[in-house]
């Protein structure tokens, strides 16, 4: 009988639930998430579901930026493509659950188009190209797609077998299901051949090319997958809101997404995104409550926090979490 847990195959090492504690905490988390609408109050549950929408978007950006190293500041605009597509489909009588995949695919198509500059450019040049794309798409939304700022979402399309998906437990469970599926897929992309190819392109594109990775294809796929998630998040946003406002898809929202990825932990697709989202969105909500929506402190403190984290903690909050876990593991000894 071995004392401890030993891994004998690579497959075991790659598993999501490697140690008993993983299994217990996964069970506990699943039970907690499933029972939450019974435990917590309505406002909190809806807020959490709303955060999950953005989590899906951040996971997408974390694939593009963290795994594949392709900088994108157009993520909010891609989310907008999905949101408007979903809203438009519901207005034509399509059920929201059918509209979701269509919205995601629309955004993926737009995102693949936006990957064109990445074939020749990288780093700062690519970032500037994505800023230009973000602003152009924003112009399109503002002038042509939704000239009156709001595009309504048909509430009748948010029903499934008599269950209203636009509020209460229905909304929570629908969002939770999509988010968990999205996160699970994203985690699997990270440990698949595609994910390893993305990491190779991120770390050194020249050597990736030399070992036989089709760099162009990987870059295009990185953008496509990332924007698929953005579109999915946009579709979920259409599920949550009664009208789509283009102010959700500004350059600043894109900047916030990038900040969430880097503050949380680029390359750690699920946990990094979750930490970054929690830190920044919770920080924003708190600042909003403390200063009654005065935007000055949001800019000052959020900006300072982003700059501080990127400079002082290159790996993001995930590294802080790792240190905390290590400390707790060794406690009460220091090493």
């Amino acid at each position: 009988m071995p004392a401890g847990v030993f891994k004998e195959t690579y497959l075991e090492l790659m598993g999501f639930l490697r140690y008993p504690i993983h299994r217990y905490s996964a069970l506990l988390a699943a039970a907690l998430l499933a029972a939450l609408p019974m435990l917590a109050d309505q406002f909190l549950v809806t807020k959490l579901a709303f955060y999950m929408v953005f989590l899906v978007a951040v996971i997408g950006l974390n694939i593009t930026v963290g795994l594949a190293g392709q900088i994108s500041l157009a993520h909010a605009a891609l989310m907008g493509a999905g949101a408007y597509m979903a809203a438009w489909l519901t207005l034509h009588g399509v059920n929201i659950l059918l509209a979701l995949p269509v919205a995601a695919l629309t955004a993926a198509a737009v995102g693949t188009l936006l990957s064109l500059p990445s074939f020749r450019l990288k780093g700062y040049y690519l970032a500037m190209a994505s800023i230009a794309a973000q602003e152009l798409l924003f112009y399109v939304y503002q002038r042509w797609v939704a000239p009156d700022q709001y595009m309504p979402v048909n509430p009748d399309a948010k029903m499934l077998l008599g269950l209203d998906l636009s509020r209460g437990p229905g909304l929570y469970y629908a969002t939770l299901l999509v988010t968990v599926l999205a996160a699970w897929t994203a985690a699997n992309i990270g440990r698949s051949g595609l994910g390893r190819a993305m990491k190779a392109v991120r770390d050194n594109d020249v050597s990736a090319e030399i070992v036989g990775i089709n760099v162009t294809r990987v870059k295009a796929l990185a953008f496509a997958v990332g924007s698929f998630y953005a579109g999915l998040a946009g579709g979920l946003l259409a599920l949550h809101l009664s009208a789509i406002d283009y102010d959700n898809f500004t350059l600043e929202q894109s900047i916030d997404f990038l900040a969430m990825v880097l503050v949380g932990g680029a390359g750690r697709v699920v946990w990094g995104s979750m930490l970054g989202l929690a830190a920044i969105m919770a920080g924003q909500s708190m600042l909003e409550m403390m200063f009654q929506g005065n935007p000055v402190y949001r800019y000052l403190l959020l900006g300072a926090a982003i700059a501080f984290f990127v400079v002082k903690e290159p790996e993001g909050l995930i590294a802080v979490l790792r240190r905390v876990k290590e400390y707790l593991r060794l406690w009460p000894f220091s090493y």
Binding site: V65, K122, A259, V310
Partner: peptide
């Protein structure tokens, strides 16, 4: 401090500075 780090760090950090300077101007 960010010299030699990948561009994405500098992009995000200067965007943080962008927020701070914008906040100062609004203040």
């Amino acid at each position: 401090p960010l010299q030699g780090r990948p561009p994405v760090s500098l992009i995000a950090a200067t965007l943080g500075a962008y927020y701070v300077l914008k906040g100062v101007s609004m203040w």
